[in-house]
Design a protein around this nucleic acid. Structure first.
Lengths: 152, 152
DNA sequence: ATTCATGCAAAGCTTTTGCATACAC
DNA sequence: GTGTATGCAAAAGCTTTGCATGAAT
C-alpha cells in the first residue's frame, strides 16, 4: 500500500541520495534522477533487468541503468542481494545490514541483528578467522503475506 | 597441504556420494565418477567454469559438469555460495549450514552456528516473519593465511 | 533392447564495454 | 568549451538446452 506519507518519505530519500551524488562531484543528469527516484520508491527487492524494462519507455538505456546501480552500490545506498536466481538489489538504509526478503511480495524488511553480529564475532574469534564481510539473508514470508495465504 | 589421511578421507567421501547417487537410481558413469571425485577433493570453494576447465582435458563436456553439479546440489551434497563475483559451490557436510570463506586461499570452513540459528529464530518470531531459508556467509582470512600475511 | 547420459554447438540471459554523440558544468 | 554521461550495439561471461550418439542397466 502506497500511502501519502510513504510517497513523501520516498521522495525525500531520493532527494538525499541525489544530494549525495552531487556532493561527490557527479553530474545530476535527468537520467540519474529518474533512476534514483525509481529505486528509492521500491518497497523491496528488484533486479536490474526489471528496472531496465521499467525505464526503457522513458528513453533510458540499459548501460545507464547498470552504471547507475553500480554507483549507488559503491556508495552503500544499494546492497546486492542473492535471491533464487541471484542478483537483485535493495535500498539499504545505513545501520541495518541484513534483510528479510519476502518471497511472496518481494518486500525487504531491514533487520538490526546486533545479537547475530555478536555471535558472528565470537565464532570468528574462536576460529581465529578474520571476518571482513558477511552476508546474511533470510527468505520466507512476511506477516502480511502469511495472513493472506496462511496455508502456503 | 594434502596429507595421506586427507586423501583417503576425500576418497571415502567420494565413494559415499557415488553410492548415494546409485541408490537414487542414477547411472554410475565414468564421467560422473570423475566429477564427483574432483569435487570431493576440493578443499574449498570452486566455480563451475573452473571445474569445466579442469576436466576438459579428460574429455568431459561442459554440459555434463553443469548437470552433475545440479544433481549434487539438489541432493544437498553441494551448496551454492555467493562469492565476490557470485556463483560458486562448496561441498557441504550435513549439519553444518554456514561457511567461512577465506578470500586468500579459498578454503571453506564449515561452521556449526547453533547460536546464530537461535538468534535468527527469535528475530523472525518477533517480526512475525516465517523464515523458510537463510544464507549466512562470511568472507575474510583464515588463521593460516593471516599467519602468512599478517599485514594484509 | 531400452533408457538414460553425454558431447557438441547453439541459444539464452545477464552484465560489461567501446565509441560517437549529447549534455551538465 | 571541457569533460563527463549517455545510448547503442556489440562483446563477453555464464548457464541451459536440443539433438544425435554412446553407454549403463
Amino acid at each position: 500500500m502506497m500511502t501519502a506519507q510513504r510517497r513523501s518519505a520516498n521522495r525525500s530519500r531520493a532527494d538525499e541520495i541525489l544530494r549525495r551524488l552531487g556532493d561527490d562531484g557527479l553530474r545530476l543528469t535527468g537520467q540519474r534522477e529518474t533512476v534514483v527516484r525509481s529505486v528509492a520508491a521500491k518497497a523491496g527487492a528488484f533486479n536490474p533487468e526489471g528496472l531496465v524494462d521499467e525505464l526503457r519507455p522513458g528513453g533510458i538505456g540499459r548501460a545507464t541503468v547498470y552504471r547507475t546501480l553500480e554507483l549507488l552500490e559503491k556508495r552503500g545506498i544499494l546492497s546486492r542481494i542473492h535471491l533464487d536466481g541471484c542478483h537483485g538489489y535493495t535500498v539499504c538504509d545505513e545501520g541495518h545490514h541484513h534483510h528479510l526478503i519476502c518471497r511472496t511480495c518481494g518486500r525487504v524488511l531491514p533487520v538490526d541483528a546486533a545479537r547475530i553480529e555478536e555471535a558472528i564475532r565470537d565464532l570468528a574469534d574462536a576460529l581465529n578467522f578474520q571476518v571482513d564481510t558477511h552476508t546474511l539473508e533470510f527468505s520466507g514470508q512476511c506477516a502480511d503475506c502469511l495472513a493472506k495465504a496462511p496455508a502456503a
